[in-house]
Amino acid sequence: MTVLLVLVAYAGLAGVLPAAGRPWIALPLCLIALVAVGELALRAVAGPRPENGARLPAARIGFAGIAGLVTLPLVALALHAAGAPVRPAPLVAGGVVAATLLGAGVHVRERFTRSDPDQPVGTAGLPAQRGPDRSPRPGLAGTARTAAAVIVPALLAIVAGGFAVRAYLTAPRPAQPGYLSVALAGWATTIEHPVAVPARGLTVPVRVTSSGLATVTTVLRLRVGGQVLRSVPVTVAANTAQQTSVRIPALPADGCLRAVSISVGRMSTGFYARAAAGVPGRAAC
């Protein structure tokens, strides 16, 4: 059984890499591999009968599940310590190493301990948790019933939850608040310092976005140094992002820093500029 579990873990992990990008194949393979690794961890610790007399057969499922789940972060931490990135191939390699080590651990435990190490003789009279587990070994029917006890409600829940989520997501929703925004675009998004405007002027790309609003006609204004140099009507269609250009004329060559503001309606974007051929650093501006 141990060898079979190790092989299942190998097969699951090996299948993950070629299934990359196809979750409907990769996910079941990955989960099967993790459950196998978790079961191996459980067998290495507790042997084949971890329920230990409990009347709720959840210990095996729970321990295997939790052990499989924590395998992922522990392998990732080991990869980090080894200087490897958290990528599919290193993760699969880490999973293979974990499965191999745990398989070896099961083998060692089975070889060097009694067949039922946690259930020694002479424990009569102890409470169920400490006494020998006299429950029959989990046969195929018992395992199938336990699996069904988990899978059936899980499937029912997934179906009910799936319908509920779908109904919620596809139902009509209240309209979200709309907005109109203006932003620098193109080369202007890289402006980090005052811009030097050449004598021939400068073209500045601007992006105007409208979302959730009706088509609107508003005014695009260019202000330089606080003075309106240009004012034109502009129509912004509903739910569009349009790029427009605004030409900035040459600035007086006096070295002064001037605010350049491009506004669309109430929204504005802008930067500071001076003439390219100005006298830098003039104090009286």
Binding site: H193, G226, C256, L257, A259, F271
Partner: peptide, 28 residues
């Protein structure tokens, strides 16, 4: 501060610490 983006509520400025203390005409 360079005003890169503006919406009804949100504005995004870029810091230009080299321009600290420089005078300028007007506002963006």
């Amino acid at each position: 501060l360079i005003k890169m983006y503006d919406g009804p509520h949100i504005a995004i400025y870029r810091f230009d610490f080299d321009s600290l203390g420089r005078p300028a005409r007007g506002s963006v």
